[in-house]
Design a protein around this nucleic acid. Structure first.
Lengths: 267, 267
DNA sequence: CGTAGTGTTGAATTGAATCAAGTGTCGTGG
DNA sequence: CCACGACACTTGATTCAATTCAACACTACG
């Protein structure tokens, strides 16, 4: 029912054994999550149980499939759409990751969201048919495009789909409220702990290791998202490493003590 | 199309002449916005052009009317629902105002939203059928209750209503993203300026004065919403008053220089 | 190999929080 | 109607967490 079901598969299906040393020379190989194969359909997509199709039956999924356009992959830095673009579609991340951001009057940017496989991008345009943010690929990524007029039409035929999309938007609202409380009352360390735990849970959802993963965003992106400077982000990472809660090597994160990381939030 | 149409009626229909002195002994009488009359229907509700019914035709409004329950008014401090309550309905504010808040682990509260007439409360429960926040009346207030299962069923029959509700949720998401950027990059003064301008625009929507209005929430509520302490809220109000941008008398606000108030955001 | 972008760390500064003391306001009950 | 008490608000002094400014190191990529 929830877009992020807490259905207990966190940590049980890691392709990456926890014992592989992080400090090895290569990158963490398990973090290449999903194939960029455009031939896949919702029916056989391995993200189907955490994406739009949840709660749809087989024939409904086939109908959804028909309106989805599977575009060419995006390269790192490419935009899916830009602020003020006309809104036409929402997008489901198939592989890779994205950030959404706004540019302030003085040109500095603030990151509003990160997106991982199975998550829905573009709901910022539904209200007034103009995108309120820009969205950019953080790495080589592929997406499913869902023209919104067709999604509305199909939702009108399939009550389950209407219900599902209401639920997705509702979850987005809850998530935004949680970030509201994070930004209005957490310390820098609590913000980073919360951020890492969120990424961890979302990697688990994609059947990837919740303990070891790559940050595809820069320190500056993280800072803009959490309301901190990039220097503070760097300092907190260093401090958490010194406390042996996490291990950081460049963009690689290894959560050494999940319990203590969670405990940071409870104080 | 938008829930908060910028269709230019800001400031043209003030019941309260701008010349009435704020420092008079009584409260600002124009701030009693809407009748608490439970007999009114959507068709003749004067909020109908900024509430759920926008974009519905007459017969559609009649059908919407049939599923709406017009409950007894709530007194100041009464809860509409509490965090973790089962989600059953969304609510439209008919008169008065509300705050939503969450209680942290240590019992301190953080305000996540304020609601004014014509706005929709309760979308925090749509995603997982449990309310994520508590919502309380800030003054004597009345609401329309819309059982969500019936709203979904009716949306399925009326494409315009489905579309309208998607748009309302989309606008909520955009609003939350704007608060995200506010909290992650604005100074205390910018936050308060933005807050006052938001209230001003929303009072204008209700055909009330955008320059002079009552704050029905405490300084502490405002601080919890904006990520500031109540002392800082008080200090910034005093400072804006010294600069002659606003005039504050207890809970009464008089915006003396809208241009300079807006200019605070542009730096 | 060099350069631009990204990240780390230190020192000084500052905006807002905290601590503290006091005033103002409102609702209640005598 | 007034006195009381609880709550809301203001203002000042001090502290502190995070920013800013600055210098330098690492990495990736043509």
């Amino acid at each position: 029912m929830s877009q992020q079901p807490m259905n207990g598969f966190i940590g049980i299906t890691n392709k990456q054994p926890a014992s592989v040393p992080l400090a090895s020379t290569g990158t963490v190989s398990s973090v290449r999550p999903c194939p960029h194969n455009p031939a896949v359909s919702c029916s056989n997509c391995r993200l189907s149980d955490l994406c739009l199709p949840i709660a749809l039956n087989k024939s409904e999924i086939v109908q959804l499939d028909e309106i989805i356009e599977r575009n060419r992959p995006l390269r790192k830095g490419e935009h899916l759409y830009r602020q003020r673009d006309e809104f036409r579609s929402v997008f489901a991340v198939r592989s890779g990751s994205f950030k959404s951001y706004v540019l302030g009057p003085d040109g500095q940017s603030r990151v509003t969201s990160f997106f991982m496989p199975g998550e829905i991008i573009g709901m910022d345009g539904i209200g007034n048919r103009i995108h309120g943010v820009s969205t950019m690929a953080l790495e080589h990524s592929s997406i499913c495009e869902i023209p919104f007029s067709q999604l509305e039409r199909l939702s009108h035929q399939l009550p389950n789909l209407q219900s599902r999309f209401f639920a997705i938007m509702g979850n987005e609202i809850v998530k935004d409220q949680q970030i509201h409380t994070l930004l209005s009352s957490y310390t820098a360390e609590q913000r980073l702990a919360s951020f890492l735990l969120s990424l961890s849970a979302r990697y688990a959802r994609c059947q990837l290791s919740p303990e070891r993963f790559i940050l595809h965003m820069t320190r500056s992106d993280i800072g803009e998202y959490l309301g901190l400077t990039l220097e503070t982000v760097s300092r907190v990472f260093s401090s958490l490493q010194k406390k042996e809660v996490i291990l950081v090597k460049n963009r690689e994160i290894d959560i050494k003590d999940m319990t203590r990381l969670k405990a940071i939030l409870g104080e």
